[in-house]
């Protein structure tokens, strides 16, 4: 594959073959609790796309311009979390100030995402896999879209589940985890197409 096409490959791989939720099982807590409703899943999914893309950009700059030159790469866990938390807080404040519509649709979910491990995961993978700046952006965007697709699919399935007869002990998180596993198996079908990481 040519060098310039690689970011595009990463983008699609992050959505399908290396879906952060279905292949790495990251970001499960909000996935399990919010996927009850289609409408809220939509809001949260879009918020995740936005935050993943922007924090992977920010953290790339922080890592390669500050941490690496100073030789303190091992502090990336702490620094990434601080950067994500501060960024999300700022964005929430700004959204709340400028647009009421956007806040109702998106801003309300931002605090939920601050502690989402998928967001941190994207920043850490980007370092492990030595992505360039452009690759990191497409990886962040792709992972966000992948997470969005997974939660939308789950919300759709759970709408149907409401009318299904589920064994008592499996109601709620139990059946959701089993279905997530099945979805992960289905997504494995894509893995012949592309490979990254």
């Amino acid at each position: 594959m040519s060098e310039s096409a690689y970011p595009i490959a990463i983008f699609f791989a992050a959505i399908f073959t290396n879906n952060i939720l279905l292949s790495n099982y990251l970001g499960m807590c909000s996935f399990l609790s919010v996927s009850r409703e289609l409408k809220t899943s939509l809001g949260l999914g879009i918020a995740v796309i936005f935050v993943m893309t922007s924090t992977s950009m920010l953290n790339w700059v922080v890592y390669y311009k500050i941490l690496e030159p100073l030789g303190i790469e091992y502090l990336r866990f702490i620094v990434f979390i601080i950067v994500i938390a501060a960024f999300v807080q700022l964005v929430e404040m700004i959204i709340e100030r400028v647009s009421e519509v956007l806040y109702a649709a998106l801003g309300i979910f931002l605090p939920l995402i601050t502690v989402n491990c998928a967001i941190l995961g994207v920043s850490l993978f980007m370092v492990i896999r030595d992505y360039t700046f452009v690759e990191s952006i497409t990886f962040g965007l792709g992972s966000g879209i992948g997470w969005f697709l997974a939660i939308m699919a789950m919300a759709g399935i759970r709408q149907k589940l409401k009318r299904a007869r589920i064994p008592h002990g499996l109601e709620g998180a139990g059946i959701t985890l089993i279905i997530t596993g099945m979805m992960a198996l289905a997504f494995m079908g894509f893995s012949g197409m592309l490979q990254i990481g």
């Binding site: 100073l70 502090l75 501060a86």
Partner: peptide
Amino acid sequence: SVGAVSGISAFLAILMVIA
């Protein structure tokens, strides 16, 4: 390392206070 983490935290904290 201590300086860098404190620096980054302080910068972000100031940003938050201003915001």
